[in-house]
Simulated assay, not measured.
Amino acid sequence: MQDTALRRIFPLAALASVAALGLTACGSDEAPPAAPAGVTVQAGTATSVHVMWRPAPERSGITGYEVYRGGTKVKDVPANQSMVDITGLTPSTPYTFTVRAKDGDGTYSPYSAEKSATTPAAVAEDKKAPARPAGLTGKSAGPRGAQLNWTRSAKDEGITSYDIYQGGSKIHSVAGGATSARITWLRPGTHYSFTLAARDAADNTSPVSRAVEITTPKGPGDDPDTAPTAFRAASHAADGAYYVDLSWVAPKTGAEVTTYEIYLDGKFATTLIWGGETPKGRATYSVYVGKRAGDAYRVKLRAKLPDGTWGRFSEERPVVTREAP
């Protein structure tokens, strides 16, 4: 029992980050990022709006986005996402949104074009969910995309939006009048399962549709391997406690990777979410493992990818807690 207690995992506090403020300093030769393009805004329910924009190109240096309602910032969004739900709004009210990007130097882009939406009226005591969406079909749209289509409901059920899921992760949302959607940020040579759910103004959600299975083709030069690379593990002692020290290089997904799962001895130990900008090059993190020297562990980790799936595990490394020299 004592050994089990010593081997419990207590994740470290989220890593702190310092947010750069304002515009580029005078005299800087660095051009600011381009303003986010393709911004769309649509009411999801009577109290929420869905904001989307076109993902930045690969190797653009973008590390995150800020979403503004009027002149007020309402959301920080990591670089591997290009959509967000804004909640807590008032029914039957017009809202205007803009988005801006920032890069690793803390330089901000111009604001995007303003886009507006009006939340629908609240429906009192509406607890009836829309019917399950029918007729979902899909096909690949190149190595990194998919096209989905479905049948419009024969009944007027007050549908305000459709949410698209890949596995258990919501990855896209479109207006209630839509019958198709284009999905991006997928990986070449990868099998996907998509489902669809309808929402109404009272935020009632339908059962999910049947799943549609799609496999993206592998294009020339595309490598779907998603495991972190150059993975290393060591240990150190500090203040009577022992830590496993990890370092790795993030997989190349076309966007920043902000979330990882860490496993010890084949079992899930903790989730790491970078609280600010993700590390450039080699990332490092330490996990508390107890107060006894000489305990042996096997450690590995995997990344959450922009398409909502978990990537392949890194190589598994052995490590033994050791006394400080």
Rank of each mutant, 00 (worst) to 15 (best):
P220C: 00
K291I: 03
S247H: 04
P224V: 11
A234D: 15
D126I: 00
I171N: 06
K300E: 11
A121R: 11
D203V: 03
F10T: 11
E261P: 00
K267W: 01
A269K: 04
P279Q: 13
P91G: 01
Y288N: 15
A283T: 07
D105G: 14
A324H: 14
T119G: 05
P133C: 05
A269P: 01
Y192M: 07
S48N: 01
L6I: 10
D307S: 09
S28C: 13
S173C: 11
E30K: 15
Y111T: 03
D203G: 13
Y288H: 15
T87V: 11
G254F: 05
A113H: 07
E114G: 02
E66P: 01
E323P: 00
T47M: 09
F231D: 02
I183T: 03
Y108A: 14
V18G: 06
A238F: 14
R182H: 14
L246C: 04
R199W: 07
G70I: 08
K128P: 00
P143M: 10
L246P: 06
T190K: 12
D200S: 08
L12A: 15
G61Q: 12
A134V: 14
T215L: 01
P143F: 07
R187H: 10
D156I: 00
A124L: 08
G176T: 06
Y242M: 06
P130C: 04
Y288M: 07
W274P: 06
D3E: 11
K115Q: 12
Y260A: 02
D225F: 11
T119V: 04
A20W: 03
V257Q: 00
P57W: 02
M83I: 07
R282S: 14
A43G: 06
P133F: 02
F231W: 01
T184C: 07
Y111R: 11
G290E: 00
T87E: 08
K75A: 12
T226M: 07
T253A: 13
Y65P: 04
P133Q: 08
W185N: 12
W150D: 04
D223G: 02
E315M: 07
Q147N: 02
A303H: 09
D163S: 07
G281A: 13
R144M: 12
S112N: 06
L196Q: 06
V77R: 05
K128L: 13
T253N: 03
